[in-house]
Amino acid sequence: MNELNHLSQGEIWVLALVVILLICQSTWLFIDARKHSRFPWFWGLWGLIQSPMPLLFYWLIVRRGLRKPQV
């Protein structure tokens, strides 16, 4: 807890923005994966602990995988 006393005002704002970004990313991944029946808990949890790799992999694996090749 002593480390938090040494954070500047700018560092606290950056930390808060990162937390909000991760929660938004995780929520979107969970909801969209649930719509497509693609392991929503996996995508939601992974999106909560890391960024932007889960989002990129989700778009490449799940979203692009849903498209059928056009003839």
Rank of each mutant, 00 (worst) to 15 (best):
M1C: 03
M1I: 05
M1Y: 09
M1H: 02
N2A: 14
N2S: 10
E3L: 13
L4R: 09
L4F: 13
N5S: 15
H6I: 06
H6D: 07
H6G: 12
L7Q: 13
L7K: 11
S8M: 00
S8G: 07
Q9I: 11
G10E: 08
G10F: 07
G10L: 01
I12P: 00
I12R: 04
I12W: 04
V14Q: 04
L15T: 11
L15G: 07
A16R: 11
A16I: 14
L17T: 02
L17E: 03
L17G: 14
V18S: 12
V19W: 05
V19P: 00
V19T: 10
I20T: 05
L21W: 09
L21S: 12
L22F: 02
L22A: 07
L22N: 02
I23R: 01
C24W: 07
C24T: 12
C24P: 02
C24Q: 14
C24K: 10
Q25R: 05
S26D: 07
T27K: 03
W28Q: 13
W28A: 11
L29H: 05
L29R: 06
L29I: 11
F30Y: 15
I31V: 14
D32E: 14
D32S: 12
A33G: 05
K35R: 14
K35H: 12
H36N: 15
H36Y: 12
H36E: 15
H36K: 15
S37E: 14
S37K: 15
S37A: 14
R38V: 06
R38K: 10
R38C: 11
F39I: 02
P40M: 02
W41V: 04
W41A: 07
W41N: 07
W41E: 01
F42S: 02
F42M: 05
W43H: 05
G44V: 02
G44L: 02
G44K: 02
G44Y: 03
G44S: 06
L45Q: 00
L45H: 00
G47V: 08
L48H: 00
L48S: 08
L48P: 01
I49Q: 01
Q50R: 05
Q50V: 09
S51N: 14
P52C: 12
P52S: 07
P52L: 08
P52D: 10
P52F: 08
M53R: 01
P54T: 04
P54S: 05
P54A: 03
P54D: 08
L55F: 09
L55M: 02
L55W: 06
L56P: 03
L56K: 06
F57E: 04
F57S: 12
F57W: 13
Y58T: 03
W59H: 12
W59Y: 13
L60Y: 08
L60G: 05
L60Q: 11
L60N: 04
I61W: 06
I61A: 10
V62E: 03
V62P: 07
V62D: 02
R63P: 00
R63A: 06
R64M: 11
R64E: 06
G65A: 01
L66Q: 15
L66P: 04
L66A: 14
R67M: 10
R67L: 08
R67P: 00
R67A: 12
P69S: 11
P69T: 12
Q70G: 08
Q70E: 09
Q70S: 11
Q70M: 08
Q70A: 13
Q70K: 15
V71N: 04
